[in-house]
Amino acid sequence: MDASNPMTLSESAPHRTGRVRSSRRIADRVLRTACLVATIVGAVVLGSILLMLIIQGVQGFTPAMFTHPTPGPGSEGGGIANAILGSLVLTGIGITIATPIGVMAGTYLAEYGRFSKIAGLIRFLNDILLSAPSILIGLFVYTLMVRPMGTYSGWAGGVALAIIAVPVIVRTTEDMMRLVPGTLREAGAALGAPPSTVIMSVTWRAASAGIVTGIILALARIAGETAPLLFTALNNNSWFSPDLMGGVANLPVMIYQFALSPYPNWQSLAWAGALLITATILVLSIIARLVIKPQMSR
Protein backbone atom coordinates (compact mmCIF):
# COMPACT_ATOMS: atom_id res chain seq x y z
CA MET A 1 0.00 0.00 0.00
CA ASP A 2 2.75 2.39 0.98
CA ALA A 3 4.52 3.39 -2.21
CA SER A 4 6.82 5.84 -0.42
CA ASN A 5 8.39 3.09 1.65
CA PRO A 6 11.25 1.44 -0.26
CA MET A 7 10.94 -1.70 1.86
CA THR A 8 7.65 -2.67 0.28
CA LEU A 9 8.69 -2.28 -3.34
CA SER A 10 7.77 -5.86 -4.18
CA GLU A 11 4.04 -5.31 -3.78
CA SER A 12 3.24 -7.32 -6.88
CA ALA A 13 4.99 -10.46 -7.95
CA PRO A 14 8.37 -10.03 -9.59
CA HIS A 15 8.73 -10.78 -13.28
CA ARG A 16 10.51 -14.01 -13.94
CA THR A 17 13.84 -13.92 -15.57
CA GLY A 18 16.19 -16.81 -16.15
CA ARG A 19 15.18 -20.42 -16.66
CA VAL A 20 12.46 -22.15 -14.69
CA ARG A 21 11.39 -25.76 -15.03
CA SER A 22 8.51 -25.86 -17.48
CA SER A 23 5.97 -27.58 -15.21
CA ARG A 24 6.48 -24.86 -12.63
CA ARG A 25 6.24 -22.18 -15.26
CA ILE A 26 3.00 -23.64 -16.60
CA ALA A 27 1.42 -23.85 -13.13
CA ASP A 28 2.41 -20.25 -12.59
CA ARG A 29 1.01 -19.11 -15.92
CA VAL A 30 -2.26 -20.96 -15.29
CA LEU A 31 -2.65 -19.29 -11.91
CA ARG A 32 -1.90 -15.84 -13.25
CA THR A 33 -4.31 -16.28 -16.15
CA ALA A 34 -7.06 -17.77 -13.96
CA CYS A 35 -6.83 -14.89 -11.50
CA LEU A 36 -6.93 -12.33 -14.28
CA VAL A 37 -9.91 -14.07 -15.89
CA ALA A 38 -11.78 -14.17 -12.56
CA THR A 39 -11.30 -10.45 -12.12
CA ILE A 40 -12.37 -9.71 -15.68
CA VAL A 41 -15.50 -11.83 -15.20
CA GLY A 42 -16.40 -9.76 -12.14
CA ALA A 43 -15.93 -6.51 -14.02
CA VAL A 44 -17.84 -7.79 -17.07
CA VAL A 45 -20.82 -8.78 -14.92
CA LEU A 46 -20.98 -5.36 -13.29
CA GLY A 47 -20.67 -3.75 -16.72
CA SER A 48 -23.37 -5.99 -18.12
CA ILE A 49 -25.78 -5.16 -15.30
CA LEU A 50 -25.21 -1.43 -15.72
CA LEU A 51 -25.55 -1.69 -19.49
CA MET A 52 -28.83 -3.61 -19.16
CA LEU A 53 -30.20 -1.01 -16.74
CA ILE A 54 -29.19 1.89 -18.94
CA ILE A 55 -30.51 0.39 -22.20
CA GLN A 56 -33.81 -0.72 -20.72
CA GLY A 57 -34.21 2.04 -18.14
CA VAL A 58 -33.61 5.05 -20.35
CA GLN A 59 -36.55 4.07 -22.55
CA GLY A 60 -38.91 4.29 -19.61
CA PHE A 61 -37.30 7.47 -18.27
CA THR A 62 -39.81 10.22 -18.95
CA PRO A 63 -40.78 13.42 -17.16
CA ALA A 64 -44.23 11.89 -16.55
CA MET A 65 -42.49 9.27 -14.40
CA PHE A 66 -41.88 11.85 -11.69
CA THR A 67 -45.37 13.39 -11.71
CA HIS A 68 -47.81 10.48 -12.09
CA PRO A 69 -48.62 7.64 -9.70
CA THR A 70 -48.28 4.00 -10.76
CA PRO A 71 -50.99 2.91 -13.21
CA GLY A 72 -53.57 0.22 -12.47
CA PRO A 73 -53.59 -3.08 -14.38
CA GLY A 74 -54.29 -2.56 -18.07
CA SER A 75 -54.32 1.23 -17.99
CA GLU A 76 -51.96 3.27 -20.14
CA GLY A 77 -49.11 5.56 -19.15
CA GLY A 78 -48.55 6.39 -15.53
CA GLY A 79 -45.41 7.11 -13.57
CA ILE A 80 -43.68 6.04 -10.40
CA ALA A 81 -43.88 9.28 -8.43
CA ASN A 82 -45.77 7.66 -5.56
CA ALA A 83 -43.23 4.85 -5.36
CA ILE A 84 -40.32 7.31 -5.31
CA LEU A 85 -41.99 9.36 -2.58
CA GLY A 86 -42.91 6.21 -0.65
CA SER A 87 -39.37 4.88 -0.85
CA LEU A 88 -38.01 8.20 0.43
CA VAL A 89 -40.45 8.16 3.34
CA LEU A 90 -39.77 4.50 4.26
CA THR A 91 -36.00 4.90 4.00
CA GLY A 92 -36.31 8.15 5.96
CA ILE A 93 -38.23 6.45 8.78
CA GLY A 94 -35.77 3.56 8.77
CA ILE A 95 -32.64 5.68 9.00
CA THR A 96 -34.21 8.07 11.56
CA ILE A 97 -34.93 5.18 13.90
CA ALA A 98 -31.67 3.37 13.21
CA THR A 99 -29.19 6.26 13.52
CA PRO A 100 -29.58 7.07 17.25
CA ILE A 101 -29.81 3.40 18.24
CA GLY A 102 -26.88 2.39 16.05
CA VAL A 103 -24.60 5.24 17.06
CA MET A 104 -25.35 4.83 20.78
CA ALA A 105 -24.86 1.07 20.64
CA GLY A 106 -21.60 1.50 18.73
CA THR A 107 -20.52 4.06 21.33
CA TYR A 108 -21.24 1.60 24.12
CA LEU A 109 -19.22 -1.13 22.44
CA ALA A 110 -16.28 1.15 21.69
CA GLU A 111 -16.14 3.18 24.91
CA TYR A 112 -17.91 1.78 27.96
CA GLY A 113 -18.04 -1.91 27.22
CA ARG A 114 -14.81 -2.32 25.36
CA PHE A 115 -13.60 -5.10 27.62
CA SER A 116 -16.83 -6.43 29.11
CA LYS A 117 -18.29 -9.85 28.35
CA ILE A 118 -21.77 -8.61 27.50
CA ALA A 119 -20.25 -6.20 24.95
CA GLY A 120 -18.34 -9.10 23.40
CA LEU A 121 -21.59 -11.03 23.06
CA ILE A 122 -23.42 -8.05 21.58
CA ARG A 123 -20.57 -7.42 19.14
CA PHE A 124 -20.71 -11.05 18.03
CA LEU A 125 -24.49 -11.10 17.62
CA ASN A 126 -24.41 -7.77 15.83
CA ASP A 127 -22.02 -9.25 13.27
CA ILE A 128 -24.46 -12.12 12.79
CA LEU A 129 -27.43 -9.79 12.46
CA LEU A 130 -25.40 -7.92 9.84
CA SER A 131 -25.64 -10.86 7.46
CA ALA A 132 -28.95 -12.33 8.64
CA PRO A 133 -31.44 -13.03 5.84
CA SER A 134 -33.56 -9.91 5.45
CA ILE A 135 -36.68 -11.96 4.76
CA LEU A 136 -36.61 -13.21 8.37
CA ILE A 137 -36.61 -9.61 9.54
CA GLY A 138 -39.71 -9.14 7.38
CA LEU A 139 -41.40 -12.09 9.10
CA PHE A 140 -40.45 -10.67 12.51
CA VAL A 141 -41.90 -7.23 11.81
CA TYR A 142 -44.99 -8.84 10.27
CA THR A 143 -45.64 -10.71 13.53
CA LEU A 144 -44.71 -7.69 15.63
CA MET A 145 -46.63 -4.95 13.83
CA VAL A 146 -48.70 -5.97 10.80
CA ARG A 147 -50.61 -8.80 12.49
CA PRO A 148 -51.59 -6.83 15.64
CA MET A 149 -52.44 -3.68 13.66
CA GLY A 150 -54.42 -5.69 11.14
CA THR A 151 -53.02 -3.84 8.14
CA TYR A 152 -49.84 -3.36 6.17
CA SER A 153 -48.29 -0.02 6.98
CA GLY A 154 -45.46 2.30 6.14
CA TRP A 155 -44.46 2.28 9.80
CA ALA A 156 -43.91 -1.46 9.73
CA GLY A 157 -41.82 -1.07 6.55
CA GLY A 158 -39.77 1.67 8.18
CA VAL A 159 -39.15 -0.43 11.29
CA ALA A 160 -38.09 -3.42 9.17
CA LEU A 161 -35.60 -1.23 7.29
CA ALA A 162 -34.35 0.23 10.60
CA ILE A 163 -33.60 -3.27 11.92
CA ILE A 164 -31.51 -3.92 8.82
CA ALA A 165 -29.70 -0.59 9.12
CA VAL A 166 -28.83 -0.78 12.85
CA PRO A 167 -26.08 -3.46 12.64
CA VAL A 168 -24.36 -1.60 9.79
CA ILE A 169 -24.27 1.62 11.81
CA VAL A 170 -23.21 -0.16 15.04
CA ARG A 171 -20.30 -1.83 13.28
CA THR A 172 -18.92 1.25 11.51
CA THR A 173 -19.44 3.50 14.53
CA GLU A 174 -17.55 1.10 16.79
CA ASP A 175 -14.73 0.60 14.29
CA MET A 176 -14.35 4.32 13.68
CA MET A 177 -14.43 5.25 17.37
CA ARG A 178 -11.76 2.66 18.10
CA LEU A 179 -9.50 4.39 15.60
CA VAL A 180 -9.56 7.54 17.73
CA PRO A 181 -6.30 7.55 19.71
CA GLY A 182 -6.62 7.04 23.46
CA THR A 183 -4.46 10.10 24.13
CA LEU A 184 -7.28 12.36 22.88
CA ARG A 185 -9.65 10.86 25.46
CA GLU A 186 -6.99 11.18 28.13
CA ALA A 187 -6.55 14.85 27.30
CA GLY A 188 -10.28 15.38 27.68
CA ALA A 189 -10.47 13.42 30.91
CA ALA A 190 -7.46 15.32 32.28
CA LEU A 191 -9.39 18.57 31.90
CA GLY A 192 -11.99 17.13 34.25
CA ALA A 193 -14.60 16.33 31.63
CA PRO A 194 -16.92 13.46 32.55
CA PRO A 195 -16.96 10.45 30.16
CA SER A 196 -20.13 11.55 28.37
CA THR A 197 -18.59 14.92 27.56
CA VAL A 198 -15.37 13.29 26.42
CA ILE A 199 -17.34 11.00 24.12
CA MET A 200 -19.61 13.67 22.71
CA SER A 201 -17.11 16.46 22.19
CA VAL A 202 -13.90 14.51 21.58
CA THR A 203 -14.46 10.98 20.32
CA TRP A 204 -17.58 11.61 18.25
CA ARG A 205 -16.05 14.71 16.75
CA ALA A 206 -12.86 12.91 15.82
CA ALA A 207 -14.78 9.96 14.36
CA SER A 208 -17.56 11.98 12.74
CA ALA A 209 -16.57 11.32 9.12
CA GLY A 210 -16.50 7.59 9.77
CA ILE A 211 -19.83 7.59 11.58
CA VAL A 212 -21.43 9.53 8.72
CA THR A 213 -19.98 6.97 6.31
CA GLY A 214 -21.65 4.21 8.29
CA ILE A 215 -24.98 5.98 8.05
CA ILE A 216 -24.58 6.47 4.28
CA LEU A 217 -23.67 2.80 3.86
CA ALA A 218 -26.73 1.81 5.87
CA LEU A 219 -28.83 4.09 3.67
CA ALA A 220 -27.44 2.43 0.55
CA ARG A 221 -28.15 -0.96 2.06
CA ILE A 222 -31.80 -0.35 2.94
CA ALA A 223 -32.71 1.70 -0.13
CA GLY A 224 -32.79 -1.40 -2.32
CA GLU A 225 -34.13 -3.90 0.21
CA THR A 226 -37.18 -5.68 -1.13
CA ALA A 227 -37.82 -8.86 0.82
CA PRO A 228 -38.69 -7.29 4.20
CA LEU A 229 -41.01 -4.76 2.56
CA LEU A 230 -43.09 -7.49 0.91
CA PHE A 231 -44.78 -8.37 4.19
CA THR A 232 -44.71 -4.97 5.84
CA ALA A 233 -45.24 -2.00 3.54
CA LEU A 234 -46.34 -4.05 0.51
CA ASN A 235 -47.28 -1.78 -2.38
CA ASN A 236 -50.06 0.48 -3.52
CA ASN A 237 -51.04 2.13 -6.78
CA SER A 238 -52.31 5.35 -5.24
CA TRP A 239 -50.72 8.28 -3.48
CA PHE A 240 -50.17 7.35 0.12
CA SER A 241 -52.16 8.79 2.94
CA PRO A 242 -50.14 10.68 5.54
CA ASP A 243 -50.98 8.21 8.31
CA LEU A 244 -49.02 5.55 6.33
CA MET A 245 -51.66 2.88 7.02
CA GLY A 246 -52.50 0.32 4.38
CA GLY A 247 -50.00 -0.49 1.65
CA VAL A 248 -47.41 2.16 0.90
CA ALA A 249 -45.97 2.34 -2.60
CA ASN A 250 -42.21 1.88 -2.75
CA LEU A 251 -39.67 1.36 -5.51
CA PRO A 252 -38.31 -2.13 -4.73
CA VAL A 253 -41.69 -3.87 -4.39
CA MET A 254 -43.03 -1.89 -7.38
CA ILE A 255 -40.07 -3.13 -9.45
CA TYR A 256 -40.66 -6.71 -8.29
CA GLN A 257 -44.36 -6.67 -9.17
CA PHE A 258 -44.10 -4.67 -12.39
CA ALA A 259 -41.08 -6.48 -13.86
CA LEU A 260 -42.91 -9.80 -13.68
CA SER A 261 -46.19 -8.37 -15.00
CA PRO A 262 -47.51 -8.90 -18.54
CA TYR A 263 -48.13 -5.19 -19.24
CA PRO A 264 -45.48 -3.40 -21.36
CA ASN A 265 -45.96 -0.04 -19.65
CA TRP A 266 -45.55 -1.66 -16.23
CA GLN A 267 -42.38 -3.37 -17.36
CA SER A 268 -40.86 -0.18 -18.72
CA LEU A 269 -41.70 1.61 -15.46
CA ALA A 270 -40.01 -1.23 -13.56
CA TRP A 271 -36.85 -0.77 -15.61
CA ALA A 272 -36.89 2.99 -15.10
CA GLY A 273 -37.31 2.43 -11.35
CA ALA A 274 -34.49 -0.11 -11.35
CA LEU A 275 -32.15 2.33 -13.08
CA LEU A 276 -33.09 5.10 -10.66
CA ILE A 277 -32.59 2.99 -7.54
CA THR A 278 -29.33 1.39 -8.67
CA ALA A 279 -27.87 4.73 -9.72
CA THR A 280 -28.82 6.21 -6.34
CA ILE A 281 -27.28 3.32 -4.42
CA LEU A 282 -24.06 3.27 -6.43
CA VAL A 283 -23.67 7.04 -5.96
CA LEU A 284 -24.27 6.66 -2.20
CA SER A 285 -21.68 3.87 -1.99
CA ILE A 286 -19.11 5.88 -3.91
CA ILE A 287 -19.74 8.92 -1.68
CA ALA A 288 -19.31 6.71 1.39
CA ARG A 289 -15.98 5.48 0.07
CA LEU A 290 -14.78 9.02 -0.67
CA VAL A 291 -15.74 10.21 2.81
CA ILE A 292 -14.03 7.28 4.49
CA LYS A 293 -10.84 7.56 2.43
CA PRO A 294 -8.88 10.18 4.39
CA GLN A 295 -9.54 8.28 7.64
CA MET A 296 -9.02 4.75 6.55
CA SER A 297 -6.11 4.96 4.17
CA ARG A 298 -3.11 3.53 5.89
Binding site: A220, G224, T226, P252, I255, A259, A274, S285, I286
Partner: peptide, 14 residues
Protein backbone atom coordinates in the same frame (compact mmCIF):
# COMPACT_ATOMS: atom_id res chain seq x y z
CA UNK B 1 -15.67 -5.52 -7.32
CA UNK B 2 -16.95 -3.83 -4.17
CA UNK B 3 -19.64 -1.97 -6.10
CA UNK B 4 -20.97 -5.36 -7.18
CA UNK B 5 -21.81 -5.90 -3.52
CA UNK B 6 -23.84 -2.68 -3.41
CA UNK B 7 -26.17 -3.58 -6.28
CA UNK B 8 -29.57 -4.49 -4.77
CA UNK B 9 -30.54 -8.14 -4.99
CA UNK B 10 -33.67 -7.43 -7.00
CA UNK B 11 -31.49 -6.01 -9.78
CA UNK B 12 -29.53 -9.28 -9.84
CA UNK B 13 -32.88 -11.02 -10.16
CA UNK B 14 -33.87 -8.93 -13.17
Amino acid sequence: IELLAAVPSIIYGM
